[in-house]
Design a protein around this nucleic acid. Structure first.
Lengths: 148, 148
DNA sequence: TTGGTTTATATCGTTCACGATGCAAAGATA
DNA sequence: TATCTTTGCATCGTGAACGATATAAACCAA
């Protein structure tokens, strides 16, 4: 068979697997505070800047609104955020943290550190991480620009 | 806010995004031959070695049977594979390529090359790729061992 | 103002992922 | 042999992802 069609030769499969496994590593911590991983991403976006339209959140996460909208509705049902019509532009929906959502930041602070311990593998060190990040950022840049 | 809680500081978010975007890059090619990306992974496992129990396929893809079983059923419905009870061990279900599934390999041969062109980003070169693969393999190893 | 286009968000259907659980075959132990 | 445990696979429910499509507001040109 073609060498190229072997699993072990494919970048995509590695990214797919690494992504799933590291997301699983977040699960125990996140379920403790009632969030899924994608919901945690949304919270990070809002903790950094509260009160953003759906589109801004989606763009920062490289997601479409048809993924983000149901996600936000579930988060609203859980009481973490509010969704209100924009007054300047009535098409927009502005997403804001509730006090419950804002309070969660303190509880989430330790999570990157906790998960970091689980992810401590010899190939990702404080010295090598920036290069890895740059490679992945480049890849994301290439793929996201190409798709638009 | 905590620096650690910023999106741009997180490895997991990069892997999650890179994985989604590169999987999207496969979509045009794969939909042309009637496969989804996870189905394509299963096909690669079978092209490499036909006639494997569900468990072996799941293990090679780092997935659980509750993900793989419905996937295989859809692939059987599409006529790419067959699922038959193992005779040595009646608990097992042996998955085999149909002639249609086997024929697909030739059509899939060009896909890694085609997608590779789209993924050509300056940070992933033939020289740097092995180091990146090793880092990701290490990470996958760390995370998959920890979870068992 | 009318009519056409773009923009922002939402709805729908299908396919993963995955935790929790169920069940039957195989293997182990008393 | 009778029971106990493990193994292999499946079912169920929920929450993403995402392509395709819909809807209404905003914008723009005639």
């Amino acid at each position: 068979m073609q060498e190229q069609l072997k699993l072990e030769n494919q970048l995509c499969f590695r990214l797919y697997t690494a992504s799933r496994l590291i997301t699983q590593a977040y699960h125990p911590q996140l379920s403790g505070i009632g969030l899924t991983y994608p919901q945690y991403l949304v919270m990070m976006v809002l903790w950094e800047k509260d009160g953003q339209p759906v589109n801004d959140i989606a763009r920062k996460l490289f997601l479409e609104t048809n993924t983000v909208t149901p996600l936000l509705k579930r988060m609203e049902a859980e009481g973490f955020i509010s969704r209100t019509k924009g007054q300047a532009d009535a098409r927009q929906v502005i997403v804001r943290l509730t006090s419950k959502g804002r309070a969660l930041e303190k509880e989430a602070e330790c999570i990157p550190y906790e998960v970091g311990k689980a992810v401590a593998c010899r190939s990702i060190t404080p010295e090598s991480a920036p290069a890895l990040y740059e490679t992945l950022d480049d890849l994301i840049q290439t793929l996201s620009v190409g798709g638009r």
